[in-house]
Simulated scan of single mutants.
Amino acid sequence: MTARPARLTALLAAGLLAALTACSSAAVGPDPSPTASSDAQAPELRLGYFANLTHAVALVGVDDGTYQESLGDTQLTTQIFNAGPAAVEALFGGAIDATFIGPNPAINAFAQSDGDAVRIVSGATSGGAQLVVRDGIDSPDDLVGTTLATPQLGNTQDVALRAWLADQGLETSLTGGASDVTIAPQENSQTLDLLKAGELDGAWLPEPWASRLVVDAGAHVLLDEKELWPDGDFVTTHLIVSTEYLSTYPGTVKKLLEAQLATSEWIAANPDEAKTRSNAVIEELSGKPLSPQVLDRAWSNLRITLDPVATSLQTSADHAVAAGTSKETDLRGIYDLTLLNEVLAEHGQEPVADGGLGASGT
């Protein structure tokens, strides 16, 4: 059996100590409230994520065995996606049980299923998305007649770009019709090649792709998305789970969250090593590592956090409605942070809030 990663061992020990302390306190005080979760364990957890630095908590934790060690007898299998809509399609099709994903595909999944299919159970990353463009484009007015890329129609960056262009008075089309700016959703690697060849004018991309276009293709930043958000804080990646899986196997989901916490804490304590390990996994998954310049630039734009930054989700949803990529939806119930807050409490950490969009409205 593979040795348990040291950070997971430490985290489990801390949780045990917290649990013992709670039991000791309960012996001389009122009876504790019954737990809302069960220990039901699944035989398998099928997890999706991307080969992007914005998914570093999965890149690192899956690769070094932290996730599998935490899951115990539950077999972990993984699938890599390019963008959120494809991950949602896989979840709806029963190919995966949970996935790290951006906010807008999660919103779409919730809307398409009338609030039944998915729940956001944790955050993962804040920040790390930029609009980068070729030389000669220095203002929104310069974008008229250009073609800009995004990872996929309806994904988080696609929606953000369409909403921002609309705020600048520039029209876009979902169907390729007449517009001020043409948006071409495509694979991120294709975007890099086309910009290098002079056949594309720019793109709104997550890291490390925004940095790759800057460093490897000579693009420059027209807009850093953090400039659009209070304190520069917005959700880039969070973890969603199928509602059926969550209700059937809450014990497995809790172990997944324990592994995520352990990995997040290790990344915070070891940022340089975490950056290097993430790059090694990206090389394994994509066939090519990031250059040191790209890696350093991209990593500095991210914040790894289990807080889902729920206050930014409604704004993302409003942007999607305005862009025409999603219908207006009541998002109450999209979050279920119960298990995450249990894990945080067991390790002496403050709870995170759902911005009024959870079942409890906290």
Rank of each mutant, 00 (worst) to 15 (best):
L45S: 10
Y67V: 14
V60M: 05
Q75A: 13
T78A: 02
P30C: 10
T54P: 09
Q75M: 11
T77C: 03
S33K: 14
P34C: 10
S24T: 04
T54W: 08
C23Y: 11
P34Y: 08
A22K: 10
S70N: 04
Y49R: 06
I80W: 02
A22V: 10
S25W: 05
P34S: 11
P43K: 14
A40N: 14
A51M: 10
E89Q: 14
G65Q: 06
D64N: 13
D64Q: 05
H55V: 02
T21M: 13
Q79P: 05
S70R: 08
T54Q: 06
G48T: 00
P30H: 05
S33L: 15
D63T: 04
T35V: 09
R46A: 11
L53S: 07
S37H: 13
G84I: 02
A51H: 03
S25C: 04
G72Q: 03
F81M: 11
Y67D: 01
Q75C: 04
A51Q: 07
T77Q: 04
S37I: 06
N82D: 08
P34E: 09
D64P: 06
H55Y: 12
S25L: 09
A27S: 12
T66N: 06
L59C: 09
A56L: 15
A83W: 08
C23I: 13
T35W: 07
R46L: 10
V60H: 07
Q75S: 08
P30Y: 03
G72N: 04
D39P: 06
L53Y: 12
D73N: 10
L76T: 00
T77A: 06
G84K: 11
T35F: 10
F50Y: 14
L59S: 09
V60I: 10
L71V: 02
I80G: 05
V28P: 00
T35G: 07
A42I: 02
S38R: 14
T78D: 00
V62M: 06
D31T: 12
V62W: 00
G84W: 05
D64Y: 01
V57T: 06
F81P: 08
L45A: 07
L53N: 12
L76P: 02
E44T: 12
Q41W: 15
A42C: 07
T21R: 15
A36K: 14
G84M: 08
D31L: 15
V88I: 15
T54Y: 08
E44D: 07
Y67K: 05
P43L: 13
P85G: 07
F50C: 15
S37L: 14
